[in-house]
Computed example of a mutant assay.
Amino acid sequence: MKICAAMSGGVDSAVAAARAVDAGHDVTGVHLALSRNPKSYRSGARGCCSIEDSNDARRAADVLGIPFYVWDMSEEFADTVVDDFVAEYAAGRTPNPCLRCNEKIKFSAVLDRALALGFDAVATGHYARLATAPDGTVEMHRANDMAKDQSYVLGVLTQEQLARSMFPLSETTKDVIRAEAERRGLQVAQKPDSHDICFISDGDNAGWLTEKLGAKPGQIVDESGQVLREHEGAYAFTIGQRRGLRLGIPADDGKPRFVLDIEPVSGTVTVGPREALDVDHLTCIKALWCGAAPTGPLECTVQLRAHGEEHRAVVTVQGDLVEVTLRDSASGIAPGQACVIYDGTRVIGSATIDKTA
């Protein structure tokens, strides 16, 4: 097959491309330029959108002996990932830009372009497993290495996209990947994994959002409405946050306080005890299904954070809404986060949390 290998400049995507070559495919490496001004995004080994990453990807392609191109996706990335991130925080929600990037860029815009250019599929260095069911449906499952499993951020993929995707690292652990990269002579063998948000160069999310949205003063209050202090912008806070509140006034019981609610219009941030963060029900919107949507109440598990635990749940689809009743309570869940639904190791789909109760 003719394969477009998405090469981020890291060790995972480099080895994924190498394995596609070993499997006998006609492979072309592609690196995504996601910033109109690359210096404005993170630089150094912790990023995935830097000039250094582009150079690392090119060197890896040279070692593998495959053609290499840089695709300018900066406009699409700004419109669908960065602007969405800003808008979600302005509305008091907590988005996941990596999940949105997979949905809108890596497995939509890139796949569309690849297919238009005659490629059969896109290969990436994500840790997830694909399997074909007896009825021909392509199923996505958790990776064998649970410590590296990335099925949560891939839960937005549709059946059509999964059928055109390849995850060559699905059965492998990270230490094996690094050792393999060393044997292949890939300079990225010991390159650190990327962290944080690639388009915030210094990792200061609150400062970056303040630059984009401006100061919007509001108040931090307790559950009774007592004003504890003023703040410069509600987007500097997330549900469940404890550190950095700088309240000064201790709670009556002396226990730590956490962010319970963010009201974006007034800018009011409500804080309270940890137990007030517990939720048992989620109402979700914007569902995306990896195959067919559940037709009745589904006993399953859900994952609510990229590196969070699984919770037993019952999921019911009601028109455009996905109602999730948690059999195991979750804590600190914020609107805007993704609820990814699993049946065992199989990913059923993903929806955006709209309300919690």
Score class of each variant (00 low, 15 high):
Met1Gly: 10
Ser8Cys: 00
Ser13Phe: 06
Ala14Thr: 09
Arg19Met: 14
Ala23Arg: 14
Gly24Arg: 09
His25Phe: 03
Thr28Gln: 12
Arg36Asn: 14
Arg36Tyr: 06
Pro38Asp: 10
Ser40Pro: 01
Arg42Cys: 11
Gly44Asp: 11
Cys48Lys: 00
Asp56Val: 09
Asp56Ile: 09
Ala57Met: 12
Ala61Tyr: 04
Val63Cys: 08
Val63Pro: 03
Leu64Arg: 02
Leu64Gly: 04
Tyr69Gly: 05
Val81Thr: 06
Val82Tyr: 01
Ala91Ile: 05
Arg100Val: 13
Glu103Pro: 05
Lys106Met: 10
Phe107Trp: 08
Arg113Tyr: 09
His126Glu: 07
Leu130Lys: 05
Pro134Arg: 10
Gly136Asp: 07
Thr137Leu: 06
Val138His: 01
Glu139Asp: 09
His141Asn: 11
Leu154Thr: 03
Val156Asn: 03
Thr158Arg: 09
Thr172Trp: 14
Lys174Glu: 13
Asp193Cys: 05
Asp196Asn: 13
Ile197Lys: 01
Ser201Gly: 02
Ser201Cys: 05
Gly203Ser: 09
Gly207Pro: 05
Thr210Ser: 10
Glu211Thr: 14
Glu211Gln: 15
Gly214Cys: 07
Lys216Ala: 15
Pro217Tyr: 05
Gly218Pro: 06
Gly225Gln: 03
Val227Tyr: 07
Gly233Asp: 08
Phe237Val: 10
Ile239Ser: 04
Ile239Lys: 08
Leu247Ala: 04
Lys255Asp: 12
Pro256Thr: 06
Phe258Thr: 01
Glu263Gln: 15
Arg274Asp: 03
Arg274Thr: 01
Glu275Thr: 14
Leu277Ser: 04
Asp278Thr: 12
Ile285Cys: 09
Glu299Lys: 14
Val302Ser: 05
Leu304Tyr: 05
Leu304Glu: 03
His307Lys: 12
Gly308Asp: 02
Gly308Phe: 04
Glu310Ala: 13
Val315Trp: 02
Asp320Glu: 14
Val324Phe: 08
Asp328His: 09
Ala330Tyr: 03
Ser331Gln: 12
Ile333Glu: 00
Pro335Glu: 02
Val340Leu: 13
Gly349Gln: 11
Ala351Lys: 01
Thr352Phe: 11
Thr356His: 04
